[in-house]
Amino acid sequence: MAWEEELKRAICEGEEEQAERIVSAALDENINPWEILERGAIPGIIEAGRLWQEGEYFLPDVILATEAYNQVSVALEPLLSEGERRGRGSVVIGSVEGDAHEIGKNIVVAMLRGSGYQVTDLGIDVEKEAFVESVRESNPDVLGLGAYMTTTMRRMPEVIQSLIEAGLRERVKVIVGGAAVTEDYAKKIGADGYGKDAAQAVSLVERLLGGG
């Protein structure tokens, strides 16, 4: 089997050690890092997303695929050019203040990276000021807010309000997601879009940035 297929399968099946070995061997053979990502790693994470959407994969399968992809992308990222890193657009993402849940967000991050976006992950329990500061500093195309609990999703409109007050709302598309959030809620708080799961979040970003 060619290295591309092996890497795609290793990532899709969440075999991170095997994926790292394949990447290392490919680099030893002077294969371009961007090519390794584009022909092996990205198809692997996209395949995992497809299987998830079709109901073949459960969360553990996606998590392990995500982990393997992240491992590979961390190794390859320093070797990429600035243009390659910037990719198709940029996204800042985080779980809102009070929310310590990160699994769903991490999957969205991996899927977005796997789809060629540059993602800044602010982590969990992120205060609204930190979101605003990050939008001001890095000028992303999209800001993603995640909330897992009905108690914490009330922070989402506060972030949007802070963006308005800072005069930054028009500069960035705001998308929301997480177990507690619904499409109706997203509309009500004035978000630009809602993603039910990671795959939908990627499609949404593509649509908002005019690529889908």
Partner: peptide
């Protein structure tokens, strides 16, 4: 756990 003023405590997953 993480304690906050106005919501239930939560496990510190970090």
């Amino acid at each position: 756990l993480i304690w906050r003023e106005e919501s239930e405590p939560d496990v510190d997953t970090r």
